[in-house]
Amino acid sequence: MRMYISPRAPKEVLDYAQAEANDSGRHANHAEGSCFPLSWNLPPGADLGEYEWVLNGFDTKDLPSINLVPVRRDEPWETIDAHLNRFGAEYLLGIMPTLWQLEVRFHAALRRSGIPVMMVPPINLASVPSLFAQFPIHTVLTPLRYLPELRTLLPSRDPHYMTILGPSDAPIECSPGGKVSQEVHLVPGMVALFQCETLAARPTTGFHPSDRFIWEWENDRLYVTDPAARFTRLMLPRHYTMREETCDCGRTLTLTEAV
């Protein structure tokens, strides 16, 4: 079964995606490495001053294919926006590898809500308790791999953890309570799949697909297309089952890791 998950996508984009698939006979495959396999070009006449450069992968081990790609500085980070709207958090701490180049976009996302920016590179995780002692930090945004160390460093604190996974990373099973939400990024800072509060509280790992992209699902595989045509029919490396259900957050689709 093939199913377009994003029926609201412009027809011409879907046609373009279909034509690309027919021409190449196959989909681009994200599973070939953690790097985004396509290079992105700036639109003609783009103002360089409006763009920042982000890494197209998560790990410098993928050196041959890793690169820097331009992303608009004000490109939304919808999970941060939604989280701040939901909880009215006043202090949010970001922990991000320096090489991801995400600080400027993180800064832009927080300043839209008047939130001071606090960032700690993973090499300085030891300074996190000091920040917690001075600020009522409500939420920590961090790659999933630093979650165990953070919990060790903050034994008496119980912040919300928004955790970032690469497309190849295995999500964790969440304990009920919803204090850890997970989001799968295509490249650092580009949210593809995310958990609303309801999904984060479930013991099974489910995700909503981002409304920003066009999604197709076929035989437990997910394909993603960018309406701005920066990438087309990219296959995500992990397998997902799809369920149509109405979530408490109002969304109607849930993707769950296929066993």
Binding site: W53, I66, N67, P97, L99, Q101
Partner: peptide
């Protein structure tokens, strides 16, 4: 000046940093 482009790095992986910097 916003037109000045910045790539940030740490000393974690100088080899990868240099490769990216040269491409940049």
């Amino acid at each position: 000046d916003p037109s000045v482009k910045i790539m940030v790095a740490d000393r974690g992986n100088l080899e990868a940093t240099a490769a990216l910097a040269a491409r940049f």
